[in-house]
Structure formats: C-alpha cells, structure tokens
C-alpha cells in the first residue's frame, strides 16, 4: 500500500471567533474520487481551500504528495513558506471554482496557456498544442478563440477545468463546480468530471450533486460543524447513513 496522496491531520481553522474547521482528519489515496457533502457553513469549502493554501490553517497539517502544504519543518520547528514556494506547491494542485473565475480578458485558449507559458515557462507553441488537446478533451475544441463572456456557464466551467489540467496536477479540487450553473448546463460539467475520474485523476469534489456522488465517488465524506461526521462508500453513506446529522441532511436534499 502506497502513501496516501492527501493526508490531513487534525486541521483547525478559525475566522475571527468562528472556528470553521475543528480537527479534520482525512486521507485520500491516489486515483480516489472523494465527494464532500454537508450543509452550508459546515466548513467543506474552507477545508478544500486550505488544501492549496488559499486559506491558511491555524494548526494541524496537510500533506499533498509528500509535501507539507504552506510550511516547512526543520530542526523541530515549523516555518512558513515564502510566497514563491507556496506558488510552486500549488502547481501540482488544480482548482476549479464555483464561479469559474476565468480570466475575462483572455480567450479560452489563452486562459489555458497562461500558466504554462508564464509560470512553467513552456514555449508558446507547445503550450498551445496542449491547450487545444485539453479543449478537445472537454468538448470545446471549436471554441478556442472565444472570450469567457461569449461562452455559456457550462462551457466556461469546462474551460476552467481545462485550465486547471494544463499544469498536469496530481490532484484536482472542485469547489461546488455546478452550483452557479443553470440546471440544464449542470450535466455537461458533470460529464467532463466523470471522464476525468475515469482517467484516474485524484479528485476532491465539494458538491450538492448527490447523484454525481453516488455514481462517481469512491468515497463520500459528510461534514458538519467543522468535523467529518461520517464517511464511507457512497452506497453506505447515502443509503444507510449511521449518524443522525447525515440522515437529517440527506432527508432534506434528496
């Protein structure tokens, strides 16, 4: 058994007086697809943002692919990493946002090539060839020259997925990727994510799409009040929840 790709140990995080994460412990294996469910305010998005250090944790530790995220241990002490070191860590982690956050002044193609060219210093030709491949993969091969404002929400989110994939991440984080979409556009984004899961990508998906979790997830994690309340295979957690809070939540959303 290899080491887990992601290991969170007793992760805590407060915003002012409000403790949002109250000791999260979670391990995720390579190739595993984990869906994180929970009511709003349960801390699931914050936990996801802590994994690539967009929010910094107050205590505990998060390891991704053997790297301690955001910090460095030496001589028994923990040092905060410099911004460029954190930036380097983030390159191995792709992130997809609820509101897409595409760069509006760049075309779909340029959105994808931006980081490979300016962060990884790849040549333009190589980055563009790869970007065309990725657009093909998310079924947008014919929209390379479109600006985000000229694309539908579903198309924008698929470009955002392609943008995250362009850095060849070992881990993909999805923060409610379909919550800002019109209902008829949700399916195309979920299909893209299913393809990704089938190709063996390790994925952590914060979502309200119970159907997606049931079909695609290897494991469902239910969070509430800043802790992991219950986790297990989707069939077990979704169809036979043990904890009353899980039962209460599922009764409301299904």
């Amino acid at each position: 058994m290899t080491d887990p790709l992601v290991r969170a140990v007793n992760v805590r995080k407060s915003f002012g007086d409000l403790e949002v994460l109250r000791g999260i412990n979670l391990e995720i294996d390579r190739g595993e697809v984990v869906c994180v469910l929970g009511p709003s305010g349960s801390g699931k998005s914050t936990f996801l943002r802590c994994i690539n250090h967009l929010d910094r944790i107050d205590s505990g530790e998060i390891w991704v692919d053997g790297h301690l995220i955001g910090y460095r241990r030496a001589h028994g002490k923990t040092y905060e990493l410099r911004p460029h070191e954190i930036a380097a860590q983030r390159r191995g982690i792709g992130m997809v946002f609820q509101k897409f956050n595409l760069f509006p002044h760049r075309t779909a193609l340029e959105n994808i090539t931006e980081a490979p060219i300016f962060v990884k210093r790849q040549g333009k030709a190589r980055a563009e060839a790869r970007a065309h491949e990725l657009l093909e993969r998310v079924n947008l091969g014919d929209r390379a020259d479109f600006y985000p404002a000229q694309l539908s929400g579903g198309q924008q989110q698929r470009v955002a997925i392609a943008r995250a994939l362009a850095l060849d991440p070992t881990l993909m984080l999805f923060d409610e990727p379909t919550s800002a979409l019109d209902p008829e556009l949700v399916g195309e984004v979920l299909d893209t994510m299913k393809d990704l899961a089938r190709d063996g990508m390790t994925m952590i998906v914060v979502t309200h799409e119970i159907g997606f979790a049931r079909e695609v997830a290897d494991r469902v994690v239910f969070m509430d009040g800043g802790v992991v309340v219950e986790q297990g295979p989707p069939r077990q957690v979704l169809d036979d929840p043990q904890h009353p809070r899980t039962r209460g939540f599922l009764a409301k959303v299904i």
């Binding site: 380097a88 956050n101 760069f103 943008r163």
Partner: peptide
C-alpha cells in the same frame, strides 16, 4: 476571484498583477 484563480495556477503576486 481573479487573484485567487491566478494564485491557484501557481502565479506569484507580481505575475498575477502584471498578467491578470
């Protein structure tokens, strides 16, 4: 969200300012 997206693709502060 734009700076967050820039950070998430590994951009440093100055690069994010310049490009995004």
């Amino acid at each position: 969200g734009q700076s967050e997206a820039a950070e998430a693709v590994g951009m440093g502060r100055m690069l994010a300012y310049r490009r995004i």
